[in-house]
Design a protein around this nucleic acid. Structure first.
Lengths: 157, 157
DNA sequence: ATCACTATGCTTAGGTC
DNA sequence: AGACCTAAGCATAGTGA
C-alpha cells in the first residue's frame, strides 16, 4: 500500500516523526532557497528540533542574522509608536535609550568593543557561532551527488 | 503548452516574479505550518519582499519572536566560548555585561520598565508590533473558504 | 536507524478570463 | 492586476533492503 492523505497532526510514533522531520526539513530548506533565488527577496527559516544539536538556520547563519536584525531594526520604531498611552513614560525612556545606543554606535564606529557589545545587545550577536547549517549544506550536496551517481550508473547500465 | 522545468534563477519579468512570489510564499508558509504541527518543533520563516508592506513572519509574530530570542539566547554562550583568544578582553567585558544584564533582570523582575528595556535590548522587543501576519492568515482562510465554496457548489451541481 | 525507490498527492507554471 | 484551471513536475509516505 502506498500513501494515503497525510493527517496533519502530531506524529506520535517516534521514528516515523523523526523521518518525516528529516525529509520535510530538507524540503523546506529547498523551497526557501528557491523563493530567495527566483524573487531575489530576503528570506530565512529557523528550526528548533530535538533532532538537531543546533538550530537549523537557512539560507545561512549570516544571512539569517541579517534578515533578523533588519526585521528588528524596522520593527522598533513601529513598536515604539504603537505603545499605548499608559506606557508613555516607558516609551520615552525607551526612545532615549535607543537613541543613546545609536548615538554611541556612531561615535565609536571604530571602537571594536563597543561594536561587539552593540551587536550583542541589540543588532545581532551571533557572528562567531558554530556553523550549524554547514551540516545541512553537506547533506544537500551529498544527496545531490548520490542522485548524479545513480544517474550515471543508469546511463552505463 | 503547460509548464516546463523551472529555471532556478531570478525572474526578470516583473509581474511574473510577483505572481510566483505570491504563490510560493503561501506554499512556504503552508509547509512551515505543517512541519511544525507534524513534528511539534519550533520553526519560523521570515520574508522581506518589496511586495509586502511589512515583513512576512510565520507562524506568527509572537512565535517567531520566541523562536528568534530562543535562538539568540542559546547562541550567546556558544559565541562567547568560541571567540578567539586575541579578543579575550572583549570577551570578558562582554560576559560581565551580559551577567549584569541577566542579574539586573532577575532583581527587577517586577519592574516593568526594566523588563521592557531588557527585552528591547536583548531578548526580543517586538511584542507590540503591528500584526503583519494577520493579512496572511486571512489570505489563507479566504483561500480555503473559496475552495470549500467551490466544492459545495459542485456537490449541488 | 538510514538509504533508495516509487506511487501518490501536492505545488505551481502557464494559460484564460 | 488577481481569481481560477489544469497538467507537469515535485515532494514525500510508505516500503523493502
Amino acid at each position: 500500500m502506498t500513501r494515503g492523505k497525510v493527517n496533519l497532526a502530531y506524529i506520535s510514533n517516534d521514528s516515523a516523526r523523526r523521518t518525516t522531520f528529516r525529509k520535510r526539513k530538507s524540503g523546506l530548506i529547498k523551497k526557501t532557497t528557491e523563493i530567495t533565488k527566483l524573487c531575489e527577496i530576503e528570506a530565512c527559516a529557523i528550526m528548533f528540533s530535538p533532532y538537531d544539536p543546533e538550530p537549523v538556520v537557512w539560507p545561512s547563519q549570516l544571512r539569517a542574522q541579517h534578515t533578523i536584525s533588519r526585521y528588528r531594526r524596522m520593527s522598533l520604531p513601529e513598536q515604539t509608536k504603537k505603545m499605548v498611552d499608559q506606557e508613555g513614560f516607558t516609551r520615552q525612556m525607551l526612545e532615549k535609550t535607543m537613541e543613546k545606543v545609536t548615538q554611541k554606535r556612531k561615535e565609536n564606529q571604530h571602537n571594536q568593543m563597543t561594536q561587539v557589545m552593540y551587536q550583542c545587545l541589540y543588532g545581532g550577536g551571533f557572528e562567531n557561532l558554530t556553523i550549524g547549517d554547514l551540516n545541512n549544506t553537506s547533506g544537500l550536496i551529498s544527496q545531490k551527488l548520490r542522485e548524479i551517481e545513480r544517474f550515471l550508473q543508469r546511463r552505463h547500465h
